[in-house]
């Protein structure tokens, strides 16, 4: 059973955990992200010697488990990241998680791309829309997007080329991508 659950997508696991109260599905989902949770929390042990993994992780997991049952989760990674952040900001209070506008737009577009994979007409329409959205970007953003996605350039390659840090390259790409996603989402609703 455990092995079968591992093959499910986040979305399927979340829905099993919520609707069927499937504890195993919840466990598989949390386990899938547990190493990232650990990695993100590591600095807190270093910066704050009072933090103990034996208390931190169980309470973080409990918080995730609570919110899994009550909140709408679209992107598990964003949900976990935000939950960790809000925990460190205020360990006493559980702040509800709301999917960001960014995440919704991106997910919407990702789903469309996935669906279009087997539908040539939809695919063509989508490509045309991406192209149109791309032409609305600044020259630099468009350059980065094209080099990164079409020419398979790496972060470090682009950073060297532009004289930026890799961090900055990633930031610019992230912003450009969310702008694209927003435009694409708006286009579909207007249509």
């Amino acid at each position: 059973m455990y092995q079968q659950l591992r093959n499910l997508s986040d979305k399927e696991l979340i829905s099993r955990a919520r609707k069927l109260k499937d504890r195993e599905a919840e466990g598989v989902l949390l386990e899938r992200y547990s190493h990232l949770l650990v990695a993100v929390c590591l600095p807190s042990f270093r910066n704050n010697p009072g933090t103990n993994p034996q208390t931190l992780f169980p309470s973080l997991l409990q918080r995730l488990s609570n919110s899994l049952k009550t909140q709408t989760i679209q992107k598990a990674n964003e949900w976990i990241h935000q939950t960790i952040k809000s925990y460190f900001a205020n360990p006493e209070k559980q702040v509800p998680y709301y999917p960001s506008r960014d995440a919704r737009d991106q997910l919407h577009t990702e789903n469309r791309v996935e669906k279009a994979a087997t539908n040539t007409i939809e695919k063509q329409a989508l490509i045309a829309q991406v192209q149109k959205a791309l032409s609305g970007l600044s020259t630099e953003d468009r350059f980065l997007v094209e080099q990164f996605y079409l020419e398979n350039q790496t972060f470090t390659g682009l950073a060297a080329q532009k004289g930026y840090t890799t961090e900055k390259v990633r930031q610019l790409l992230k912003k450009a991508k969310s702008r694209l996603a927003m435009q694409l989402t708006n286009q579909t609703y207007v249509r």
Partner: peptide, 14 residues
């Protein structure tokens, strides 16, 4: 080449 544009929105796992 155009089709590569859809890569921008390929959902990739953590």
């Amino acid at each position: 080449h155009n089709e590569k544009l859809l890569k921008i929105f390929a959902g990739i796992r953590c």
